[in-house]
Design a protein around this nucleic acid. Sequence first.
DNA 1: GCTATTTCGTCATGGCCGTTTACAAATTAG
DNA 2: CTAATTTGTAAACGGCCATGACGAAATAGC
Lengths: 402, 402
Amino acid sequence: MTAPLHQAHPAGSGRALPDTQQGMRRRNLARVMHTVSAEGPLSRAAVASRIGLTRAAVSTLVDELVRSGLLQELGPERPGRVGRPGSALAVSGHGPAGIGAEVGVDHLAVCAVDLRGEVRARAVRHGANRGRSPAPVIEELTGLVRRVVAEAQGQGLWPAGLAVAVPGLVARDARTVVRAPNLDWHDTDLGGLLPVGIPLTVDNEANFGALAELWLGEDTPRDFLHVSAEIGIGAAVVVDGRLLRGTRGFAGELGHVPVRPDGPECPCGGRGCLEQYAGEEAVLRAAGLEPGEDRVGLLAGRAEDGDEDVRGALRDAGEALGIALTGAVNLLDPESVVLGGALSGLSPWLLPSLQAELARRTAGPACPVTVSRLGPEGPLLGAAHSVVRGVLDDPASVAERV
Amino acid sequence: MTAPLHQAHPAGSGRALPDTQQGMRRRNLARVMHTVSAEGPLSRAAVASRIGLTRAAVSTLVDELVRSGLLQELGPERPGRVGRPGSALAVSGHGPAGIGAEVGVDHLAVCAVDLRGEVRARAVRHGANRGRSPAPVIEELTGLVRRVVAEAQGQGLWPAGLAVAVPGLVARDARTVVRAPNLDWHDTDLGGLLPVGIPLTVDNEANFGALAELWLGEDTPRDFLHVSAEIGIGAAVVVDGRLLRGTRGFAGELGHVPVRPDGPECPCGGRGCLEQYAGEEAVLRAAGLEPGEDRVGLLAGRAEDGDEDVRGALRDAGEALGIALTGAVNLLDPESVVLGGALSGLSPWLLPSLQAELARRTAGPACPVTVSRLGPEGPLLGAAHSVVRGVLDDPASVAERV
DNA sequence: GCTATTTCGTCATGGCCGTTTACAAATTAG
DNA sequence: CTAATTTGTAAACGGCCATGACGAAATAGC
């Protein structure tokens, strides 16, 4: 198994595959898969012209991929143009599947996604996980995973890997949850707790959310900043289509960017961190509400009803977000900023002040701010898709396993 | 010519070389060059074991590189171990040279660096360029370039490219200076003004400074934040050994990160930007000094002499830098922060408050802050080396030109 | 309806490139 | 002085993509 670049925590950073004919072959197999996956049913000739190889070379690559069950021959295309019609190729719907899982504060979710990107099975369990110790939660999650895997297998799929999204900081080993304040987990190695016989990857939910946006969003650029919030405020930086992780894997801690350096103290040790103004707890307090079950829904509902306290609190939060994002945008020059997770539901009341602040502090045109279409589904889908992308990135690695 | 990844503004982001046998060959030539360049004189066998190819394959690659004048055979190694001693290979000192140039506010400088990384020729001209129109300045620079090129040629070198560092924002075409406030240049295409018959690249001096740090610094990590200042404050973000440029090429504008959102107005339109606290002008004003010739030297001198006003101003600037860097570090999780350019000379008085602020606002161990060893030489060396790296990254592209 | 044209997929051939295997050369160990 | 070890090179081999030719299947023109 070679670790593709976008995988949760790539081991090395150099070229993964050795530069020998075999590596070349593997990379070309990957290019065929990516092309077919991205541009729908395509003939061998179309693929060849797109990736710059000859029809003959693509033919042998396709043969290999069809034999491995990764590509499917759909039969002759509808002839619209002159010449013999090609034989349409599509990504197989019966090959490997990516299993995505999410440990939320209030729920567990698992889904299976096939190579085509379709969700083929899912399972959810609601109920607060806050404060429960990791072992029983993971045990419950394992049950859901088994159910989803079984259901996928019933449809002719086989699990190629499991990716778990957690609301917390994950070490670069892609297995250990270093700190998940909202679950009260510390230094928990999920590798030992999830006894599923398939490759495991663990990552921050914000990271998976950003990847989902990158892969599934429409017109998502290759350089953007994805901001999300469950309770803390997390950001993910995508540069040139790849996640920026940082040395320890902690990049994107937008919540503790100083907004007002002399502001209220923050548990992190700093003062006036963004989380003190735009964190869920802070917004609820400013709105005069008590923390409860569906906090985001509550805020959205009150704001919708015209509650001025809530609206004001969200306006202030948007302003603080705008200040913090001004710094981030100046530093990174992204093509856009995408609001995801809980923020997408509250965007109608956050956006105006956020954008105003950003525009006011920017010389020239301000960085466009958009709202994720995926909403709360992002992290789960991103996790499952990360496994699928792993297969697309190196088809040879799974072809052996068929 | 293929654009290597670290080059000023790579055209595309995908794999540069096509995945065919020829591309493979080219990449393997590059790997041989990089290995020999990085690890000193090495035998063919040693190179082979390092890059994972066989001795036979490396032999043919080396032959080609020697014939092109990029590698040099130094003769048999001193035999310390059992077995036939290898024949030492070293990067040639008579092949291509990188020409670096710098347009500073108070000076012009040009140098030539060979493949071994040694400076083989240089020329400097002092005198204020502030407010002069681009044409005469560039004409003067061209003269220096011609002199340095001639001197290098006299030593058996030939110029492979010219890289120019400017104190301002450069568009992604790597030729146009969009805005250089300290020179008062706007939308100036240096490509038309520099009629030297070799490939031209223009980039921000902060970017080149960061690259110099990456390539020449000792123990510089592959993920760091390089902060420098001439008059504005610029940062360069290096991720995984590559410069982060941003969509428009404007990444790293640390100077306009909000430090105190309600602070003094800034020409950029914002309020309380870092530059209002730690910019050269602001520091001079706070120290009660007038802007003059050698401003940095003046500040350092007074601080050295114990001038409390100056020390206080620098302390405050360090504090503001610390606040801005806290945000950047939270967002990027770099392995270290490196202070370069003018900041390195003032570091004794900036560092204490900067580090204190950073540590106070960080949970866990704070990001280490170091001072560049290169100082004001960084941008010029980085520019010249960027050309050299371009050759190492694709030796085949220049081998044709011999 | 028939032929020429265009495009698709495949096959045989050839060239490029790293590997394998073998061997001579140059050194150390005993 | 011999055995062992390591280096560099040469020849044969195998993998992989390119080239060129060919049959198949559609359209375009008459």
